[in-house]
Design a binder for these strands. Structure first.
Lengths: 194, 194
DNA sequence: GTCTAAATATGATCAAGAACATATATAATA
DNA sequence: TATTATATATGTTCTTGATCATATTTAGAC
């Protein structure tokens, strides 16, 4: 048998990394297989030994980006309760996140692209979104036993804030709007805590 | 002189309408000049008598969509203060808005597409976004004379909520998250009012 | 009615990019 | 070292779509 299995796995990994970066920053249509493969140190032909289509790659890259993204990074640390929440908010609604973070949150970077993608992709996106909410709800420790739907507003605020700060032309405006979102997010959290 | 001037204006109008719809719902790359012109009752050749490029059309369609969009529609009614605000929120964060409204808000429908567009387009987007904030701030009537940056969080919540509800796979989830956003928005407003 | 300038239509060009088919290079095994 | 299965590379096809050049139609002016 040729080429060790880990060689192939490493190649696939590099493809996923470069695909995730490109898809998140340039969107679906503007990223090409050629460039992705070139960034991964290969040429286009090798692509089809790893994935069946561009759309499938998008799906896998989305999952990959979510697992390694800014948000999940915070999940790993050992803070608890509101300390975790505030730290996560600071990081998520930050300047570094929207401009050039290595691992941005796909939920925020490609919200608008998702509606036109294949059903599988939308399903993947939805799953990731649900997980994000579930995770935050866990840290919120809502006393009342009603559902945790308040979290939806918080995540919408986070995702909207980051997406907007990226869209907007004016860096100063981006900073101000992120600051405003941080404040509002904390306020929403404090109320829910009661 | 051939063709009356209003004839040309009417054609341009139809192009803008069909372009706005297509750009908002399908995004930049998935909408083609051919289809836009066909929807407007012409063929591609006629396009260049009205606009210089697809990118220029996008810019103009964005402005057009903003002027005729869901948000501006509410600006015209005669409600005042918090009545206006709550009505606007109900309409903006509504099911009809994210699924198939004739005139959706471009800020929410194409947030993520903007970062990769030409500078002129980003400038236009930013201008529209600023106007939205200014308008809401006007109705908020903030007592304190500090800046009105709290509005940024409100609009981020609105835009994020609508964008997410469109992305998500599950209509029930979309409804719940919109409801959550409506509640949170009102809460944010009530606090600012003090 | 004829003429003319501008609006619209048709045909052609050109580039980009996904997908595939075929070639080559690799590394484990015998 | 020869073999072989598989990873990667190269060349090609095909489609799509923006743009442009050239026709044709239109409605007002003479």
């Amino acid at each position: 048998m040729p080429y060790t299995l880990q060689h192939k796995k490493a190649s696939r990994q590099r493809i996923l990394e470069s695909a995730a970066r490109s898809f998140l920053y340039l969107g679906y249509e503007r990223t090409g297989i050629n460039e992705i493969m070139h960034d991964a140190g290969m040429t286009r032909g090798a692509f089809y030994a790893h994935f069946n289509s561009k759309s499938e790659l998008y799906d896998k890259a989305l999952t990959y980006a979510a697992a390694n993204g800014r948000f999940m990074a915070y999940h790993k640390n050992d803070k608890v309760g509101s300390a975790w929440l505030k730290g996560m908010l600071e990081g998520y609604l930050s300047q570094e996140h929207f401009e050039g973070a290595e691992t941005p949150c796909p939920l925020a970077f490609i919200v608008t692209d998702i509606a036109n993608r294949e059903p599988e992709v939308r399903q993947t996106y939805t799953r990731i979104y649900k997980r994000m909410n579930r995770l935050i709800a866990h840290y919120t420790e809502n006393k009342s036993d009603k559902n945790n739907d308040e979290v939806f507003a918080l995540t919408a605020l986070m995702i909207g804030g980051v997406a907007l700060s990226r869209a907007v032309d004016d860096p100063g405006l981006a900073d101000r709007l992120l600051a405003s979102c941080r404040q509002a997010a904390v306020r929403l959290l404090d109320e829910d805590g009661e």
